[in-house]
């Protein structure tokens, strides 16, 4: 029998991101308990944020050792929409980083079972890039019996590691974050004939035009539309002398497109990367994406077009 190595070659200096798919109680215990005990034996903070079933199993198995976990929390109450959830998570990570050289986390994003929680896969994808230098092991639990096939498919495409039975191994289906995002964003159809189009050289012109155009049942979203579009324009006008703003509504969806003739986006994942001090323009994209209900990007060396989708 091969000896078990719960974190494989991971040496605690960078990010390891594993998807563990389980069905039975025994599978859960066989994976988590050695993982947690290894962390405790190494003196690392061990955090567990999971659903009720996993918490119950772990509490029974670990007994008194549960108290040695740095966090043992319910995942059910964590979901506040993708951006807010990640922003809160990001703050926790930075706090941990200032307190410990390395740590490990068992996380069960139970909200992936909800219709509105599925966007979380995009954040999982981008985490591989933006947390690459964060010194922790994230063991993500996914219940095969609760999650739909489409979500499980996204899970394996967004986690570079999976479990072989005795050590973590590379996931064959793993995709680069940009490629994953492109595959899940809304289809890029031609603008409808009734769209309003403006050529903009200063963002305030678009604020005026949009504030006047966003009417008839969309008033409650007007502030979001204006601010999100403004941020996209601010970025566009950093790289191009003017930008085009197109605006249309399609039944229950309002769409704004900002297109420029700049050199293309260096990083299409920015809308999913939490604010940090070292970025120019990154916060604007994060904010725009978080204000909108969905977003898609068409970027090439001859220009960038970004669409934001708002629902009533």
């Amino acid at each position: 029998m091969t000896s078990m190595r719960p974190t494989g070659e991971w040496n605690g200096t960078d990010f390891a991101h594993e998807a563990f798919l389980f069905a039975t109680d025994q599978e859960v215990l066989d994976r988590i308990v050695p993982f947690a005990m290894e962390g405790l034996s190494r003196g690392e903070p061990v955090l567990v944020v999971a659903g009720k079933r996993v918490r119950r199993l772990l509490a029974e198995e670990l007994g008194q050792d549960v108290r040695r976990l740095a966090t043992f929390a319910a995942a059910e109450t964590w979901w506040r929409g993708g951006h807010e959830t990640l922003h809160a998570y990001d703050r926790d990570l930075r706090t941990l980083r200032s307190a410990a050289p390395t740590w490990r986390l068992v996380a069960e994003p139970v909200w992936l079972a909800r219709e509105d929680g599925r966007e979380w896969s995009r954040f999982e994808a981008v985490a591989n890039r933006c947390y690459a230098a964060m010194p922790y092991y994230s063991l993500c639990l996914h219940d095969r019996r609760r999650l739909p096939a489409a979500v499980l498919d996204a899970v394996v495409r967004t986690h570079p590691l999976t479990w072989s039975g005795h050590a973590p191994v590379e996931t064959a289906a793993y995709e680069d974050p940009t490629r994953f995002l492109r595959s899940v964003q809304p289809e890029w159809d031609a603008r409808p004939g009734h769209s309003a189009v403006w050529t903009i050289t200063a963002p305030r012109e678009a604020r005026r035009a949009l504030a006047a155009a966003v009417i008839d049942g969309w008033r409650e979203r007007a502030d979001d539309v204006v601010l999100a579009t403004h941020e996209l324009l601010t970025n566009a006008l950093r790289v191009a002398p003017f930008a085009e703003v197109a605006f249309w509504t399609d039944h229950e969806t309002l769409v704004v497109e900002v297109a420029d003739s700049g050199p293309g986006l260096p990083d299409e994942t920015r809308g999913y990367v939490p604010p940090a001090d070292d970025q120019e323009g990154g916060r604007g994209m994060w904010l725009a994406w978080s204000l909108a209900d969905d977003a898609s990007v068409a970027s090439s060396p001859t220009g960038t077009a970004i669409r934001l989708y708002f629902r009533r």
Partner: peptide, 9 residues
């Protein structure tokens, strides 16, 4: 009435 990211920065 309006503040953008640059204003907040």
């Amino acid at each position: 009435e309006f503040l953008d990211v640059a204003g907040a920065r």
